[in-house]
Amino acid sequence: MSVKTMTAAVNEAIDQEMARDERVFVAGEDVRVGGPFGTEAGLHAKYGDKRIVNTAISELALTGIGVGAAAVGLRPIIEIMIMDFVTVAMDQIVNQMAKMKYMLGGQATLPIVVTTHAGVDSSSAAQHSGSLEAWFCHVPGLKVLMPSNAYDAKGLLTAAIRDDNPVIFISNKRCLQTSCEVPDEPFALPLGVAEVKREGRDLTIVATGRLVIDALDVAETLAGQGISVEVIDPRTLSPLDMDTILASVRKTSRAIVAHEAVRTCGIGAEIAARISDEAFDYLDAPVKRVGAPFTPVPFAPLLEDRYLPGKAQILDAVREIGLTT
């Protein structure tokens, strides 16, 4: 164990899996110099051009490298440096990698990881700040991961690289800068398993990515007021571990779902619907959703702050369901 940033944890997972399995390689833009966030730092020196493939600015073709290479036995990690740029690669992700196994009657196995960096950070404006995870959760055939800390990032990415399915691995940019204790040796966390980050009795907050940090802060604040909050991080957004979420809601009878992405049609809508569907009789209040307003991400810090969901919005939701005044 040692304290690592999430960036370092991601880097270590890639490094250790590349060392373990020769079929694993990374392709992406500027990965030779470590990628824009440093997640591939030092890897080119170690693995060279063959396995750290510094591609042209061609997201569609570079994702195609992943699909084609996986179809014939390699295990690609495809980096799309900023999540908004996945739009350029969408056909390869949605029509090709997600559907190929099914369309081909099971012939193809596509062990691909698409890694990308999402979220609002330092006035990057509307084309560099997106959290688009829900788009991919809508596509059968893909798994979608969104870790909230360095420990989970390493364990989940390792599992993703070892998984035989296409996985979208999303790192929130602000989470990348956070640190915690992470094992130095390789380890895999199970995919599709949520984690109870904090136990509580009165309210369940299901939070993803950066909002997990905010939800834990809110839980601490509310504990001081005698309100006991359970915080759940699904970690895998597709497939969702509803069992853990439902067990919690049956215990607390109240739920808030929180994410950074636009609230409308976000993953929170799916979670809220399934809670209503499967735990309706246990609920003492409507399930509340916290997410960004229905606008593109603005540039001005003042507007960006107002846009960005966080502790204040979670606390508003707590008030709305009548837990505090």
């Binding site: 404006a125 509307a126 084309q127 603005p298 540039f299 001005a300 507007l303």
Partner: peptide
Amino acid sequence: YNGGKGGSMH
């Protein structure tokens, strides 16, 4: 030019 909504890149 963009009312503060776009910044340099827009």
